[in-house]
Design a binder for these strands. Structure first.
Length: 420
DNA sequence: TTAGGGTTAG
């Protein structure tokens, strides 16, 4: 218990110290370490990226009495090497355990499958799983299928994910997480209707979608501008006694305001507060953005002031970026610059998006001096320019024959990032 | 003692 808790708290050296003391018999302790204790330590080492030491500890346990490594020992090490991207080493350990007649279990397989998937080797993972089904009779469980389903969804191969899902259902092993994997994948692929169908199937088989599953579905319908469907899901959610949270409401408020429907958005805002969820920085950001999009910049600025005055919500760079961008787009570049000063005063760090908005605004007014100042600021703060920054500056500086300024900027950035 | 997940604003 002590060693386990030290390891889980990442205090692996303290845990190793206990092993040493146990072996020396100091502190009046004379208890022989056993295989579970060694496994705990090896897992602890692997979880903090010290898998090589874990491997050496396994060699050490072999020389002890009654401490031969078992399948858990190997599973911990295989996971350690997988998580550090050393898939080859993980496979070597797998071969080694087979040679030592230690029989791999479904956790061994799942660990390797996950390791391969995370390192972009999904077809290898699939092959390996099939081979294990044939050779070792390991049929796989909900974890195996969820891992593979998520991996195929991540590379947008929804058909393969769906086929695996059907296979899992025919084996009778899905769990709530497996359903979630597919629901999330279908939503990301822009197929909320299919995702909702899987959710209804999930309910039919006795698994209740949880808050995050519902939020995922509502977000999926909103992104496809199917707001009626999103509201249907909200109703379904409330019927299932799952309480919507601020994320649920923020999502709905965001898309209704983007759609220009402030009336419905405010209805949700009221409901949100009535439910005990105070508006968050995202709620304000969403509404401010909505006003800006609808061409009511003043309304957005008023709401921002109101937020500072009446709420405990601390503004972040997203809120400032929305306002700075809108001010620049309306030609109010000086107001944007002073808002950026206010941002710095409040200790909110500008990021690349802030600079991009500001530089774009400055370029429309050909304010070269201010741009140079901001570019220096970016360099000293090691704030990476992205392709948008480069596009803005390249268009502007080549039009006015100042390409050298851009070259200097890029060089300055390289120097500052190597110094950092 | 060991394996799989996550939602909202620019």
């Amino acid at each position: 218990m002590l060693v386990n808790h030290l390891c889980k708290a990442h205090r692996v050296d303290d845990a190793l110290d206990m092993l040493k003391k146990m072996k020396e018999g100091s502190d009046g302790i004379s208890i022989k370490p056993d295989v579970v204790l060694y496994n705990t330590l090896i897992d602890g080492l692997c979880k903090v990226g010290r898998q090589e030491e874990g491997f050496l500890l396994m060699e050490q346990m072999k020389s002890e009495h009654n401490c031969a490594p078992n399948v858990v020992t190997y599973n911990c090490l295989i996971d350690g090497f997988c998580k550090s991207g050393e898939i080859e080493r993980a496979h070597e350990l797998f071969d080694q355990m087979n040679k030592e007649n230690i029989v791999p279990n479904v956790i061994t397989i799942n660990t390797l499958v996950d390791g391969m998937c995370r390192n972009g080797r999904i077809s290898n993972a699939m092959e390996f799983f099939r081979k294990m089904q044939e050779e070792k009779g390991i049929k796989g469980n909900a974890v195996t299928f969820s891992t593979l389903i998520s991996a195929f969804c991540n590379v947008n191969n929804i058909d393969r994910a769906m086929r695996l899902f059907d296979e899992m259902e025919s084996l009778g092993s899905p769990d709530a997480l497996a359903y979630y994997s597919l629901i999330s994948g279908l939503t990301l692929a822009g197929r909320p209707d299919d995702a909702a169908f899987i959710a209804s199937k999930m309910k039919k088989y006795g698994f209740l979608p949880d808050l995050l599953t519902y939020n995922t579905l509502i977000g999926g319908f909103c992104r496809k501008k199917k707001l009626d469907k999103a509201v249907e899901i909200l109703k379904d959610m409330e019927d299932s006694k799952i309480k919507p949270d601020s994320v649920t409401y923020n999502t709905l408020i965001s898309y209704f305001t983007q759609n220009g429907d402030f009336e419905t958005a405010h209805k949700f805002l009221k409901q949100m507060v009535k439910d005990g969820n105070a508006p968050t920085v995202v709620t304000y950001g969403t509404l401010i953005h909505g006003h800006c999009l609808a061409g009511n910049l003043d309304e957005g600025l008023n709401l921002f002031e109101e937020m500072l005055r009446t709420s405990k919500v601390v503004p972040n760079n997203v809120i400032y970026n929305i306002l700075i961008d809108s001010l620049c787009k309306c030609g109010k570049v000086d107001d944007a610059l002073s808002l950026m000063d206010g941002m710095l005063e409040k200790g909110v760090r500008p990021n690349t998006t802030t600079y991009n908005a500001m530089l774009k605004g400055l370029s429309s007014r050909n304010r070269l001096k201010d741009a140079s100042r901001l570019m220096n600021q970016m360099t000293t703060q090691a704030c990476n320019p992205d392709y948008i920054t480069m596009e803005i500056l390249n268009d502007w500086f080549s039009a006015i024959g100042e390409v050298d300024k851009l070259k200097q900027f890029v060089q300055g950035f390289q120097v500052s990032s190597s110094a950092a």
